[in-house]
Design a protein around this nucleic acid. Structure first.
Lengths: 143, 143
DNA sequence: CAATTATAGTCAACAAATGTCAAAGAGGCG
DNA sequence: CGCCTCTTTGACATTTGTTGACTATAATTG
């Protein structure tokens, strides 16, 4: 696959963040532009399109002398934490008798299975979906 | 039987995928069109008609400079790739009393929810995961 | 404090792909 | 032939990437 300049810059930045050891880097836009022999606004473009909040990044910058661009990567929420939260939710449902023991057992199994057999990214995705589906299901039940 | 151009392009792509060794290729639509001396939209047609979700493929693309089309072949190892198959499976579980009415209701709800709130491709992935988790759950239950 | 210098941001024009859609063409079958 | 379905084509739309001129802001210097 032929990668665009924007792709390369994106990768480069991500490697820098990985190596930083603190989920964050501070760069100079003009410097990075020079590294890739492109106009500075290209870097701005990459940051604007590939390092958005939605992608899990927060950026910050300053113009003028000693200017910089800081890119922070949101720490991935610990999947274990996520599972625990969801498990606690399910537990609560059982307590309030909104679901029975059998459903409870099944849900716990599904959660556990998901936790142990998937890549983190997929894991987090499906946990979110199960979570919202479940919440929606509960709300749909008559009291 | 005379093979149409579309057929030839289809075969060509499938061979490429076979040779890739990773059930996936990334091509440029315009390039492939040039190879077959046809208009680019012909390639789009082939992909749209022969590489669908139902056929076991997931595609993804990007427009603009250095654009591409990625075609992934789903691995055939999981029996729960189709919503209907999964729904039927759940139905069967109820029949055989491996799950109760409540669990059944919940599962159907979750499946339905998933179906209606996700893009087809994500849907397919999630259903696969739920399917195998469920299958594993059933197998773990005492008879 | 004003001027200068050093950064970064914005925006519009252009370039480079892919997607959409409808019309025309080609075969197959009763 | 006439109809139906699938294929082929091309004009136009949309998305993404690249570049550069111009603008905004902060530090430094005289």
């Amino acid at each position: 696959m032929r990668r665009s300049l924007a792709d390369k810059i994106e990768q480069y930045i991500k490697v820098l963040i990985d190596r930083s050891g603190e989920d964050q880097i501070v760069i100079q836009r003009s410097e990075l532009a020079e590294t890739f022999a492109c106009v500075p606004s290209q870097v701005t473009y990459v940051i604007a399109t590939r390092f958005t909040i939605e992608d899990g990044y927060i950026t910050e910058s300053r113009r003028g002398g000693k200017g910089f661009v800081r890119i922070m990567r949101r720490q991935e929420t610990n999947p274990f934490q996520q599972v625990k939260t969801l498990a606690a939710f399910v537990e609560d449902l059982l307590q309030k008798e909104l679901i029975g023991k059998k459903e409870y057992g099944m849900l716990v199994y599904l959660l556990d299975y998901t936790c142990h057999n998937l890549e983190p990214q997929q894991q987090s995705e499906i946990l979110m979906i199960i979570g919202s589906a479940l919440s929606s299901f509960i709300n749909s039940q008559p009291r």
